[in-house]
């Protein structure tokens, strides 16, 4: 009886031992695979522990993004691949931001934003909308309210 029990223990211990060996082996395999993906330190992320939560004058200090509902989602989704500066230097209406997101999803490996997309679009459209015509951000206003007609020959 005791012998059979011991045999069972040995089997379990042997099984665990093999599992550990496989895991250790995989550890080295996985490390080797991952290290093929190289980029310079300047392009590297910083650990989450180093994130600051500071908002000054309505601006999230570390990223430069404006404070507002959806800020955290924008930081989390958008800065996974590119810096927040690519957001803060651009202006578009809701459709325009949606177009950029679709382009990134179709061509740049951006994932499905699910139900959070609405909040993200709200945030972008509200905080990074085109400035009003006449605020001096262009040299001459585009022609508007054009009444197109066919000129008689």
């Amino acid at each position: 009886m005791r012998e059979r029990l011991n045999t069972r223990y040995y089997t379990i211990i042997l099984g665990l031992g093999i599992l550990i060996l496989v895991l250790v082996g995989y550890f080295f395999y996985d490390t080797a695979v991952q290290e093929q993906v190289d980029f310079i330190a300047a392009d590297a992320p910083i650990p989450l522990e180093d994130i600051e939560n500071r908002i000054e004058n309505g601006v999230h200090v570390q990223t430069g993004l404006l404070d507002g509902e959806g800020l955290n989602l924008v930081i989390a989704h958008c800065t996974a691949c590119h810096s927040a500066q690519l957001v803060t230097q651009n202006r578009a209406d809701r459709d325009g931001w949606k177009k950029m997101i679709v382009w990134m999803q179709e061509t740049q490996n951006l994932w499905d934003l699910g139900t959070q997309e609405e909040t993200i679009l709200d945030y972008l459209a509200k905080n990074y909308a085109p400035e009003e015509v006449g605020s001096g951000n262009f040299r001459r206003a585009p022609l508007k309210d054009i009444e197109w007609y066919e000129l008689e020959k």
């Binding site: 330190a41 300047a42 392009d43 590297a44 992320p45 910083i46 650990p47 989450l48 522990e49 180093d50 994130i51 600051e52 939560n53 999230h60 570390q62 990223t63 955290n72 989602l73 930081i75 989390a76 800065t79 996974a80 691949c81 810096s83 927040a84």
Partner: peptide, 24 residues
Amino acid sequence: SFAALLGTDIVFALPKGYLPVALE
């Protein structure tokens, strides 16, 4: 819980997390 992403709580919720703001 996501509202806490930038807070200290997340250090425990996501022990090995990151934020890709460039180092330098």
